[in-house]
Structures are given as structure tokens and as C-alpha cells.
């Protein structure tokens, strides 16, 4: 009887401490959520306010100048044209993403399916260079690009995407876990040639990995600032990150229309945020998958 009451009391204090830690956990989670979202909230609010309203003071409530700012941001061509930047960034990011995923999958497939001399060496080599940042070869790369007169074009931003060691590694892991060699053998027996087997049979099997890597590659290229800033010279060809740096430099020396500035920032991040909101489940899973395997 007495032991029973002790255990009930134990249970009671256990439940209390569990509820307390659960409450603390939720409070922390809410805090972190606010931390993550607050700056974006301010960005959206400020994009709805006119320059005068922004100068006058701080508020957390939206105002009615969203459309005004949007028209200004889209039509202002004094420094650059934002619609042009959106288009340029899209061209570069979409092409890089397609090349990265397709050729990384092709390389991973080549290493997984075929046996050839030097395969092990090449695989180890690609793994070893995975961590080396592209910046360290940038000096030679920029010099080469300028030597070939390819500066101010998108080729030097798009073509290198064919060789992406980390995407290759991801694809290799995925192929190993999901593609039995029997399927390829069967296709061969049916008379399919090697390229057709890869394009028509292997790629559909790799769809989930393709989707994840397409998104990551697109976002990485969309956000890339370092290399484009060294290669793209004229404002017509600038991508959005370069435009952001030009906008920043301008605010250094003079005040601009802040409502318009906030709107330009919003316009350059909104495409990725929208894609993310639709595909977030997928993306977060993709990160975790890379983590388990990488």
C-alpha cells in the first residue's frame, strides 16, 4: 500500500518534470521560429511602406504601398533592371542545375555499372577533391576566361557545373542503394544501347535523387555571388547577387528610395522561397539523406 503511494507520487513528479521540459522545449522552438522568420517578416512589411513612411519610424504593421514599390522596383533602370536580373539568374541557374544533375548521374552511373582500369583511382580522386573550394582556383580560372574572351558571357558560369563532385557523390550513393545491375543486363538483352539504357531506364529510376539535386543546384547557382561578380562585367548581364552588391554600394554614398530597395531584395529572394515552401518536405529530407550518407 505504502509502496504503491510512493510510486504514484514518483509518477506524479515524473509527469510534472516531463511537462515542464516539454513546455521549455516548445518555448525554445517558438523562440527559434521567431528568430528565423522575423527578418523576413520585416522585409515584407517594409516592402509595403513608402520611403517617407520608412523614414518616419518603425512599425510591425503593413502599409498600402506594396504595388507602388513593386512597380518602381520593376521599372527602375537607373542602376540595373530587376526583371532582367531575374531572367539572367534564371538562365544561369536552370542551365547549371540541369547540367550538374545530368552529368553527375552519368558519371556515377559510369563508375557503378562499368568496370574499367583506373576506376578506383578516379573515384577516390573525386572524393578527395570534393572539399576543395572553387575559390582557390578562381585566379587561374578568371585569367583563363578573360584570355579566351569569354568574360561577360554565361559559359564560364554554366559549363563548370558539369563537374560537381558532391552531386556525383550523392548520385553514386543513391545508385548503389537503388539500382540493381540486373535491370541494366535485362535492357542489354533487349538490345538497348548503353546511352539509351542510361537515358530511358536509369534516369527514371533516379527521379527522386534528380529532383533533390536539381533543387539544390538551382538554389546554389541562383545565390552564387563570387564567380559571377568576377566574370560578368556589364549591367545587362548581371545576375541578382551582383545587383545586390551594386545596390549596397549605391546606398553607401547616397540615400535611395528605401521602399524600392526592400522590394528589390524581396524580389530577388522570393522565387527560391516559393519553390521551398512547395517542396520543403522533400528538401529537408534530402538534407538528412545527404547527412546519413555523406
Amino acid at each position: 500500500m505504502s509502496s504503491n503511494s510512493v510510486s504514484r507520487e514518483d509518477n506524479h513528479s515524473y509527469r510534472f518534470s516531463l511537462n515542464l521540459s516539454r513546455a521549455l522545449a516548445y518555448i525554445f522552438l517558438v523562440f527559434v521560429t521567431i528568430l528565423s522568420l522575423f527578418s523576413f517578416y520585416l522585409l515584407i512589411i517594409n516592402a509595403t511602406r513608402s520611403n517617407n513612411e520608412l523614414q518616419a519610424g518603425f512599425t510591425l504593421l503593413p502599409s498600402g504601398n506594396f504595388a507602388n514599390n513593386l512597380v518602381k522596383a520593376l521599372t527602375d533602370t537607373s542602376l540595373f533592371s530587376i526583371p532582367r536580373g531575374l531572367l539572367n539568374s534564371f538562365i544561369v541557374a536552370a542551365s547549371s542545375a540541369l547540367l550538374t544533375t545530368y552529368f553527375s548521374a552519368m558519371t556515377a552511373y559510369g563508375i557503378h555499372v562499368y568496370d574499367f582500369k583506373g576506376k578506383k583511382f578516379i573515384f577516390t580522386f573525386i572524393l578527395a577533391i570534393m572539399m576543395i573550394p572553387t575559390q582557390v582556383s578562381a585566379a587561374g580560372f578568371v585569367q583563363m576566361v578573360r584570355g579566351m574572351n569569354l568574360n561577360d558571357t554565361y559559359w564560364p558560369l554554366i559549363i563548370p557545373a558539369i563537374a560537381a563532385p558532391s552531386v556525383f557523390f550523392y548520385m553514386k550513393q543513391y545508385i548503389e542503394s537503388s539500382m540493381p545491375l540486373e535491370v541494366i543486363e535485362a535492357a542489354r538483352v533487349d538490345g538497348s544501347n548503353e546511352f539509351r539504357t542510361f537515358n530511358a531506364i536509369a534516369i527514371p529510376m533516379l527521379k527522386p535523387a534528380f529532383a533533390v539535386q536539381l533543387i539544390f543546384a538551382f538554389v546554389a547557382s541562383w545565390n552564387n555571388f563570387f564567380t559571377p561578380a568576377l566574370i560578368i562585367d556589364t549591367s545587362d548581364n548581371w545576375t541578382l547577387p551582383i545587383m545586390m552588391s551594386v545596390l549596397r554600394s549605391k546606398l553607401n554614398s547616397q540615400n535611395g528610395d528605401l521602399g524600392e530597395v526592400y522590394m528589390m531584395i524581396l524580389l530577388s529572394i522570393i522565387p527560391v522561397v516559393i519553390v521551398y515552401l512547395f517542396l520543403s518536405k522533400f528538401i529537408v529530407k534530402g538534407v538528412a539523406l545527404g547527412a546519413v550518407k555523406g
Binding site: 528565423s36 523576413f40 522585409l43 555571388f225 541578382l240 530577388s268 521551398y276
Partner: peptide, 24 residues
């Protein structure tokens, strides 16, 4: 899922635009 989605989001946002926002 909600919390993870939210805390991962800043990672995908353009660093240069995000920095520009913090500058302003």
C-alpha cells in the same frame, strides 16, 4: 515538420540579398 521547415529556410535564401536586408 513545421519547425524544421522554418529553421532550414534561411539556408536557401540568397546570402547577398539577406546581407543587404540586414544592412538596411
Amino acid at each position: 515538420t513545421f519547425f524544421k521547415t522554418v529553421i532550414y529556410m534561411p539556408n536557401l535564401v540568397m546570402a547577398s540579398a539577406f546581407s543587404m536586408l540586414f544592412f538596411t
